[in-house]
Protein backbone atom coordinates (compact mmCIF):
# COMPACT_ATOMS: atom_id res chain seq x y z
CA UNK A 1 0.00 0.00 0.00
CA UNK A 2 1.09 3.52 -0.70
CA UNK A 3 0.82 5.40 2.58
CA UNK A 4 1.86 3.55 5.73
CA UNK A 5 -0.12 5.78 8.10
CA UNK A 6 -3.22 5.18 6.00
CA UNK A 7 -2.57 1.48 6.14
CA UNK A 8 -1.98 1.59 9.92
CA UNK A 9 -5.23 3.37 10.66
CA UNK A 10 -7.12 0.93 8.46
CA UNK A 11 -5.52 -2.00 10.33
CA UNK A 12 -6.56 -0.46 13.67
CA UNK A 13 -10.09 0.05 12.41
CA UNK A 14 -10.31 -3.58 11.29
CA UNK A 15 -8.93 -4.87 14.62
CA UNK A 16 -11.49 -2.73 16.45
CA UNK A 17 -14.27 -4.13 14.25
CA UNK A 18 -13.11 -7.75 14.41
CA UNK A 19 -12.81 -7.90 18.19
CA UNK A 20 -9.73 -9.77 19.36
CA UNK A 21 -8.32 -10.50 15.92
CA UNK A 22 -4.87 -9.52 14.66
CA UNK A 23 -4.97 -8.06 11.18
CA UNK A 24 -2.12 -8.61 8.71
CA UNK A 25 -1.23 -8.56 4.99
CA UNK A 26 -3.36 -5.55 4.07
CA UNK A 27 -3.47 -5.02 0.30
CA UNK A 28 -5.59 -2.42 -1.43
CA UNK A 29 -7.04 -4.14 -4.51
CA UNK A 30 -8.85 -1.19 -5.99
CA UNK A 31 -10.03 2.08 -4.75
CA UNK A 32 -10.96 5.58 -5.59
CA UNK A 33 -12.00 8.50 -3.47
CA UNK A 34 -15.38 7.07 -2.65
CA UNK A 35 -15.11 3.27 -2.64
CA UNK A 36 -12.34 0.82 -1.91
CA UNK A 37 -11.67 -2.92 -1.80
CA UNK A 38 -8.97 -4.23 0.55
CA UNK A 39 -7.71 -7.77 1.03
CA UNK A 40 -6.43 -8.77 4.48
CA UNK A 41 -5.94 -11.69 6.85
CA UNK A 42 -7.46 -11.85 10.34
CA UNK A 43 -5.81 -14.16 12.88
CA UNK A 44 -7.75 -15.29 15.91
CA UNK A 45 -7.27 -18.29 18.23
CA UNK A 46 -4.51 -19.59 16.01
CA UNK A 47 -6.75 -19.54 12.92
CA UNK A 48 -6.18 -17.39 9.89
CA UNK A 49 -9.10 -16.12 7.84
CA UNK A 50 -8.67 -14.60 4.38
CA UNK A 51 -11.03 -11.66 4.06
CA UNK A 52 -12.08 -8.72 1.91
CA UNK A 53 -13.19 -5.30 3.13
CA UNK A 54 -15.52 -3.27 0.96
CA UNK A 55 -15.87 0.30 2.20
CA UNK A 56 -17.44 3.53 0.94
CA UNK A 57 -16.93 6.97 2.39
CA UNK A 58 -20.52 7.95 1.66
CA UNK A 59 -23.85 6.36 0.79
CA UNK A 60 -24.70 5.01 -2.67
CA UNK A 61 -25.40 7.35 -5.56
CA UNK A 62 -29.10 6.60 -5.60
CA UNK A 63 -28.76 4.62 -8.82
CA UNK A 64 -26.97 1.80 -6.99
CA UNK A 65 -27.37 0.05 -3.65
CA UNK A 66 -25.40 1.25 -0.64
CA UNK A 67 -22.87 -1.18 0.81
CA UNK A 68 -25.26 -1.74 3.73
CA UNK A 69 -28.01 -2.78 1.35
CA UNK A 70 -25.56 -4.94 -0.61
CA UNK A 71 -24.54 -6.67 2.63
CA UNK A 72 -28.17 -7.46 3.46
CA UNK A 73 -28.63 -8.91 -0.03
CA UNK A 74 -25.44 -11.01 0.22
CA UNK A 75 -26.69 -12.42 3.50
CA UNK A 76 -30.04 -13.33 1.96
CA UNK A 77 -28.28 -14.96 -1.01
CA UNK A 78 -26.08 -17.10 1.21
CA UNK A 79 -29.18 -19.24 1.90
CA UNK A 80 -29.51 -20.01 -1.82
CA UNK A 81 -27.39 -22.11 -4.20
CA UNK A 82 -26.08 -18.95 -5.90
CA UNK A 83 -22.29 -18.74 -5.48
CA UNK A 84 -21.54 -15.57 -3.50
CA UNK A 85 -18.86 -14.78 -0.91
CA UNK A 86 -20.03 -15.33 2.68
CA UNK A 87 -20.72 -12.13 4.57
CA UNK A 88 -18.50 -12.06 7.67
CA UNK A 89 -19.15 -8.70 9.34
CA UNK A 90 -20.86 -5.34 8.76
CA UNK A 91 -18.87 -2.26 9.83
CA UNK A 92 -20.25 -0.80 13.05
CA UNK A 93 -18.42 2.50 13.27
CA UNK A 94 -20.31 4.84 10.95
CA UNK A 95 -17.74 7.67 10.95
CA UNK A 96 -15.46 5.33 9.00
CA UNK A 97 -18.05 5.13 6.24
CA UNK A 98 -20.26 2.15 5.54
CA UNK A 99 -19.01 -1.21 4.49
CA UNK A 100 -18.72 -4.90 5.13
CA UNK A 101 -16.23 -7.71 5.40
CA UNK A 102 -16.67 -10.91 3.41
CA UNK A 103 -14.77 -14.14 2.85
CA UNK A 104 -12.00 -13.94 0.27
CA UNK A 105 -12.41 -16.55 -2.43
CA UNK A 106 -9.20 -17.33 -4.32
CA UNK A 107 -9.27 -16.92 -8.08
CA UNK A 108 -8.95 -14.49 -10.95
CA UNK A 109 -11.25 -11.52 -11.59
CA UNK A 110 -9.38 -9.75 -14.40
CA UNK A 111 -11.48 -10.42 -17.49
CA UNK A 112 -8.65 -10.15 -20.03
CA UNK A 113 -6.62 -12.80 -18.17
CA UNK A 114 -9.58 -15.12 -17.87
CA UNK A 115 -10.13 -14.84 -21.63
CA UNK A 116 -6.47 -15.32 -22.66
CA UNK A 117 -4.46 -17.23 -20.06
CA UNK A 118 -4.07 -20.94 -21.02
CA UNK A 119 -4.67 -21.72 -17.34
CA UNK A 120 -8.36 -20.86 -17.79
CA UNK A 121 -8.93 -22.85 -20.99
CA UNK A 122 -11.23 -25.29 -19.23
CA UNK A 123 -12.97 -22.48 -17.35
CA UNK A 124 -13.73 -20.72 -20.64
CA UNK A 125 -15.44 -23.87 -21.92
CA UNK A 126 -17.53 -24.21 -18.76
CA UNK A 127 -18.48 -20.59 -18.18
CA UNK A 128 -21.38 -20.29 -20.64
CA UNK A 129 -23.26 -23.18 -19.04
CA UNK A 130 -22.35 -21.96 -15.55
CA UNK A 131 -23.61 -18.44 -16.32
CA UNK A 132 -26.90 -19.91 -17.56
CA UNK A 133 -27.33 -22.03 -14.43
CA UNK A 134 -26.41 -19.26 -12.01
CA UNK A 135 -28.69 -16.79 -13.78
CA UNK A 136 -31.57 -19.28 -13.72
CA UNK A 137 -31.13 -19.55 -9.94
CA UNK A 138 -30.99 -15.77 -9.49
CA UNK A 139 -34.09 -15.36 -11.64
CA UNK A 140 -36.14 -17.74 -9.52
CA UNK A 141 -36.04 -15.26 -6.65
CA UNK A 142 -39.02 -12.94 -6.24
CA UNK A 143 -39.61 -9.83 -4.08
CA UNK A 144 -41.53 -11.98 -1.55
CA UNK A 145 -38.47 -13.94 -0.50
CA UNK A 146 -35.79 -11.22 -0.72
CA UNK A 147 -34.91 -7.97 1.07
CA UNK A 148 -36.47 -4.80 -0.41
CA UNK A 149 -34.78 -3.61 -3.64
CA UNK A 150 -35.76 -1.16 -6.36
CA UNK A 151 -38.21 -2.47 -8.98
CA UNK A 152 -37.35 -1.53 -12.55
CA UNK A 153 -38.55 -3.25 -15.70
CA UNK A 154 -38.03 -2.55 -19.39
CA UNK A 155 -39.89 0.77 -19.57
CA UNK A 156 -38.33 2.15 -16.39
CA UNK A 157 -34.77 1.11 -17.35
CA UNK A 158 -35.13 2.72 -20.78
CA UNK A 159 -36.60 5.87 -19.23
CA UNK A 160 -33.81 6.12 -16.65
CA UNK A 161 -31.02 6.08 -19.24
CA UNK A 162 -32.94 8.36 -21.59
CA UNK A 163 -33.12 10.88 -18.75
CA UNK A 164 -29.36 10.73 -18.14
CA UNK A 165 -28.70 11.02 -21.89
CA UNK A 166 -30.94 14.09 -22.09
CA UNK A 167 -29.29 15.65 -19.05
CA UNK A 168 -25.86 15.33 -20.72
CA UNK A 169 -27.38 17.19 -23.66
CA UNK A 170 -24.82 16.31 -26.35
CA UNK A 171 -26.50 15.32 -29.65
CA UNK A 172 -25.67 11.72 -30.58
CA UNK A 173 -27.59 10.48 -33.63
CA UNK A 174 -26.73 6.80 -33.06
CA UNK A 175 -28.15 6.97 -29.56
CA UNK A 176 -31.23 8.84 -30.79
CA UNK A 177 -31.79 5.97 -33.20
CA UNK A 178 -31.31 3.41 -30.44
CA UNK A 179 -33.75 5.13 -28.06
CA UNK A 180 -36.34 5.29 -30.83
CA UNK A 181 -35.86 1.60 -31.57
CA UNK A 182 -36.39 0.79 -27.88
CA UNK A 183 -39.64 2.78 -27.82
CA UNK A 184 -40.89 0.92 -30.89
CA UNK A 185 -39.88 -2.47 -29.51
CA UNK A 186 -40.84 -2.02 -25.86
CA UNK A 187 -41.80 -5.45 -24.46
CA UNK A 188 -44.68 -6.18 -22.11
CA UNK A 189 -43.74 -5.95 -18.44
CA UNK A 190 -42.94 -9.29 -16.78
CA UNK A 191 -43.48 -10.36 -13.17
CA UNK A 192 -40.48 -8.94 -11.26
CA UNK A 193 -37.59 -11.30 -10.56
CA UNK A 194 -34.22 -10.70 -8.96
CA UNK A 195 -31.81 -9.25 -11.56
CA UNK A 196 -28.08 -8.94 -10.80
CA UNK A 197 -27.72 -5.86 -12.99
CA UNK A 198 -23.99 -6.17 -13.78
CA UNK A 199 -23.58 -9.88 -14.54
CA UNK A 200 -20.48 -10.11 -16.72
CA UNK A 201 -16.85 -11.17 -16.93
CA UNK A 202 -14.95 -8.92 -14.52
CA UNK A 203 -17.51 -9.49 -11.78
CA UNK A 204 -16.80 -13.21 -11.51
CA UNK A 205 -14.14 -14.93 -9.41
CA UNK A 206 -12.85 -17.64 -11.72
CA UNK A 207 -10.73 -20.71 -11.05
CA UNK A 208 -9.48 -23.34 -13.47
CA UNK A 209 -12.85 -25.10 -13.25
CA UNK A 210 -14.87 -21.94 -13.91
CA UNK A 211 -16.97 -19.46 -11.92
CA UNK A 212 -16.47 -19.67 -8.16
CA UNK A 213 -18.46 -16.62 -7.13
CA UNK A 214 -20.48 -13.69 -8.47
CA UNK A 215 -19.50 -10.28 -7.10
CA UNK A 216 -20.71 -6.67 -7.22
CA UNK A 217 -24.41 -6.80 -6.50
CA UNK A 218 -24.78 -3.04 -6.17
CA UNK A 219 -26.98 -2.77 -9.30
CA UNK A 220 -29.32 -5.57 -8.18
CA UNK A 221 -33.03 -4.90 -8.53
CA UNK A 222 -36.28 -6.62 -9.39
CA UNK A 223 -37.07 -6.59 -13.07
CA UNK A 224 -36.97 -8.61 -16.28
CA UNK A 225 -34.59 -11.59 -16.08
CA UNK A 226 -33.56 -11.18 -19.72
CA UNK A 227 -31.88 -7.91 -18.74
CA UNK A 228 -29.01 -9.99 -17.28
CA UNK A 229 -28.69 -12.13 -20.42
CA UNK A 230 -28.70 -9.09 -22.69
CA UNK A 231 -26.03 -7.33 -20.60
CA UNK A 232 -23.81 -10.43 -20.58
CA UNK A 233 -23.79 -10.35 -24.40
CA UNK A 234 -22.66 -6.70 -24.62
CA UNK A 235 -19.72 -6.26 -27.00
CA UNK A 236 -17.78 -4.17 -24.46
CA UNK A 237 -17.72 -7.16 -22.09
CA UNK A 238 -15.94 -9.37 -24.65
CA UNK A 239 -12.66 -7.58 -23.95
CA UNK A 240 -11.51 -7.88 -27.55
CA UNK A 241 -12.67 -11.47 -28.19
CA UNK A 242 -15.40 -10.14 -30.44
CA UNK A 243 -16.48 -13.37 -32.15
CA UNK A 244 -17.62 -14.88 -28.83
CA UNK A 245 -20.82 -13.02 -28.17
CA UNK A 246 -21.28 -14.21 -24.61
CA UNK A 247 -18.65 -12.40 -22.56
CA UNK A 248 -15.82 -13.24 -24.97
CA UNK A 249 -16.07 -16.93 -23.99
CA UNK A 250 -19.31 -18.36 -25.37
CA UNK A 251 -21.88 -18.36 -28.15
CA UNK A 252 -25.45 -17.17 -27.89
CA UNK A 253 -27.29 -20.38 -28.92
CA UNK A 254 -25.46 -22.32 -26.16
CA UNK A 255 -26.28 -19.68 -23.55
CA UNK A 256 -29.95 -19.67 -24.53
CA UNK A 257 -30.19 -23.47 -24.66
CA UNK A 258 -28.56 -23.92 -21.23
CA UNK A 259 -30.65 -21.16 -19.71
CA UNK A 260 -33.89 -22.57 -21.10
CA UNK A 261 -32.98 -25.99 -19.73
CA UNK A 262 -32.12 -24.60 -16.30
CA UNK A 263 -35.19 -22.37 -16.03
CA UNK A 264 -37.63 -24.69 -17.71
CA UNK A 265 -39.07 -22.02 -19.98
CA UNK A 266 -38.36 -20.57 -23.38
CA UNK A 267 -36.44 -17.37 -23.93
CA UNK A 268 -38.41 -14.79 -25.90
CA UNK A 269 -35.83 -13.82 -28.58
CA UNK A 270 -37.42 -10.47 -29.35
CA UNK A 271 -37.36 -9.54 -25.70
CA UNK A 272 -33.72 -10.61 -25.53
CA UNK A 273 -32.95 -8.38 -28.55
CA UNK A 274 -34.52 -5.48 -26.66
CA UNK A 275 -32.27 -6.08 -23.65
CA UNK A 276 -29.15 -6.57 -25.77
CA UNK A 277 -29.75 -3.20 -27.35
CA UNK A 278 -30.63 -1.49 -24.08
CA UNK A 279 -27.56 -3.02 -22.40
CA UNK A 280 -25.27 -1.76 -25.15
CA UNK A 281 -26.87 1.68 -25.08
CA UNK A 282 -26.76 1.80 -21.30
CA UNK A 283 -22.98 1.28 -21.21
CA UNK A 284 -22.57 4.07 -23.77
CA UNK A 285 -24.70 6.41 -21.66
CA UNK A 286 -22.74 5.49 -18.53
CA UNK A 287 -19.41 6.26 -20.29
CA UNK A 288 -20.78 9.59 -21.52
CA UNK A 289 -22.11 10.36 -18.05
CA UNK A 290 -18.83 9.65 -16.30
CA UNK A 291 -17.04 12.08 -18.60
CA UNK A 292 -19.77 14.74 -18.57
CA UNK A 293 -20.24 14.89 -14.80
CA UNK A 294 -16.57 14.63 -13.90
CA UNK A 295 -16.41 17.57 -11.53
CA UNK A 296 -13.00 16.80 -10.08
CA UNK A 297 -11.54 16.43 -13.58
CA UNK A 298 -10.34 12.89 -12.79
CA UNK A 299 -8.27 11.36 -15.59
CA UNK A 300 -9.95 7.98 -15.85
CA UNK A 301 -13.45 9.50 -16.00
CA UNK A 302 -12.33 11.99 -18.64
CA UNK A 303 -10.77 9.26 -20.78
CA UNK A 304 -13.82 7.00 -20.64
CA UNK A 305 -15.79 9.68 -22.53
CA UNK A 306 -13.88 8.61 -25.62
CA UNK A 307 -15.18 5.06 -25.27
CA UNK A 308 -18.67 6.17 -26.26
CA UNK A 309 -17.73 5.80 -29.94
CA UNK A 310 -16.97 2.11 -29.27
CA UNK A 311 -20.49 1.62 -27.93
CA UNK A 312 -21.89 3.44 -30.97
CA UNK A 313 -20.21 0.87 -33.22
CA UNK A 314 -21.76 -1.85 -31.06
CA UNK A 315 -25.19 -0.22 -31.41
CA UNK A 316 -24.86 0.04 -35.19
CA UNK A 317 -23.86 -3.62 -35.36
CA UNK A 318 -27.20 -4.42 -33.73
CA UNK A 319 -29.38 -1.83 -35.51
CA UNK A 320 -27.87 -1.47 -38.96
CA UNK A 321 -25.29 -4.20 -39.57
CA UNK A 322 -23.03 -3.71 -42.54
CA UNK A 323 -21.94 -6.52 -44.82
CA UNK A 324 -21.19 -9.51 -42.63
CA UNK A 325 -24.64 -9.72 -41.00
CA UNK A 326 -23.72 -7.86 -37.81
CA UNK A 327 -23.54 -8.96 -34.25
CA UNK A 328 -25.75 -12.02 -33.96
Amino acid sequence: MGQDSDSDSLRLLLEEEMKGATVANLRRLSGGASKETVAFDACQNGKRERLILRRASHAGSGASLSLDEEAVLLEALSDTAIPVPTLRHRLQSSEQGSGFIMARIEGETIARKILRDPRYRRARREMTGQCAEILAKIHQLTPENMPPLPVSGAREEARKYREIHDAIGHPRPVMALAFRWLEENMPEETPPRLVHGDFRNGNFIVGEEGIRAVLDWELAHFGDPLEDLGWLCGASWRFGVMEKIVGGFGDLPSLIASYERARGEMVDRKRLDFWRLLGTLKWGVICAMMAAFNESGALEQAAIGRRVSETEINLLNLLAPRGGGGDV
Binding site: P173, L177, F179, R180, S309, E312, L316, L319, R322
Partner: peptide, 27 residues
Amino acid sequence: IEAGEISLETLKDHLWETVLDKVAVDQ
Protein backbone atom coordinates in the same frame (compact mmCIF):
# COMPACT_ATOMS: atom_id res chain seq x y z
CA ILE B 1 -34.51 10.55 -36.13
CA GLU B 2 -36.68 10.90 -33.03
CA ALA B 3 -39.63 12.06 -35.12
CA GLY B 4 -39.16 9.13 -37.51
CA GLU B 5 -38.67 11.53 -40.42
CA ILE B 6 -35.61 9.85 -41.86
CA SER B 7 -35.24 6.19 -42.82
CA LEU B 8 -32.52 3.90 -41.57
CA GLU B 9 -31.51 3.18 -45.17
CA THR B 10 -30.90 6.90 -45.76
CA LEU B 11 -28.95 7.23 -42.52
CA LYS B 12 -26.97 4.05 -42.34
CA ASP B 13 -23.88 4.99 -44.35
CA HIS B 14 -23.60 8.38 -42.70
CA LEU B 15 -23.78 6.92 -39.20
CA TRP B 16 -21.24 4.20 -39.95
CA GLU B 17 -18.76 6.56 -41.59
CA THR B 18 -19.05 9.05 -38.74
CA VAL B 19 -18.60 6.42 -36.05
CA LEU B 20 -15.67 4.75 -37.82
CA ASP B 21 -13.95 8.15 -38.14
CA LYS B 22 -14.49 8.76 -34.43
CA VAL B 23 -13.19 5.35 -33.38
CA ALA B 24 -10.14 5.78 -35.64
CA VAL B 25 -9.18 8.66 -33.32
CA ASP B 26 -10.50 7.32 -30.01
CA GLN B 27 -9.50 3.65 -30.25
